[in-house]
Computed example of a mutant assay.
Amino acid sequence: MSTSIDHARHTPYSDPGRHAERLAAVPADPAALSAVARNVIVHYLASGAELPVATRGDINARWLEHLLTLDQARHPAPLAKRRRLVDRVQGCCRDHTLFSVGVLRSHGVAARSRVGFAGYFIDGWHHDHVIVEAWIDGRWRRFDSEIEHPRATIPNPLDIGHCDLDTPGFVTAAQVWAGYRRGGVDPETYGVGPDVPVFRGARFVFDQVIYEIAHRFGDELLLWDAWGRIGEPGSPVTEEDAVWMDEIARLLLASDRGDADAERALLERYRADPGLHPGPSVLQASPFGDPTIEVDLASR
Rank of each mutant, 00 (worst) to 15 (best):
L276S: 09
A37F: 07
L253K: 11
L158W: 00
A110V: 04
R300K: 13
P157G: 10
F217D: 03
I210C: 01
D58P: 08
L70G: 08
T11S: 14
S145E: 04
A249L: 10
V115A: 06
D273Y: 05
V36Y: 07
V36R: 05
L98G: 04
G201R: 14
E188R: 12
H126N: 15
Y190F: 15
G179W: 03
P52D: 11
S106V: 00
S286R: 09
G102V: 06
A31M: 11
A73D: 15
N156M: 01
V86K: 13
D71I: 00
V101R: 12
I293P: 01
R9I: 00
W63V: 13
S106I: 01
R112N: 07
G108Y: 04
A80Y: 09
V36C: 03
A226V: 10
G91P: 01
L67A: 14
G116T: 05
L67M: 14
L98C: 01
S2Q: 09
L33W: 09
V185L: 04
S255D: 11
L85W: 10
A49T: 11
H127R: 10
V198Y: 05
G119I: 09
A202Y: 11
R56A: 12
Q208R: 13
V243M: 11
S235Q: 14
L222R: 03
V243S: 14
A260Y: 05
I213G: 00
R250P: 04
R271P: 00
R9F: 01
R18Y: 02
D87L: 02
A214D: 07
A24M: 08
W224H: 14
S235P: 01
D6H: 14
R250I: 00
H127E: 13
V101Y: 04
R105N: 13
A249Q: 03
E212L: 05
A178H: 14
H96I: 01
G108E: 06
T55Q: 06
R62F: 14
G289W: 08
S34Q: 12
S14M: 08
E146Q: 14
H10L: 08
R181P: 03
P187S: 03
A134E: 07
V176W: 08
L51N: 07
I230A: 02
G193I: 02
R84H: 11
L267F: 06
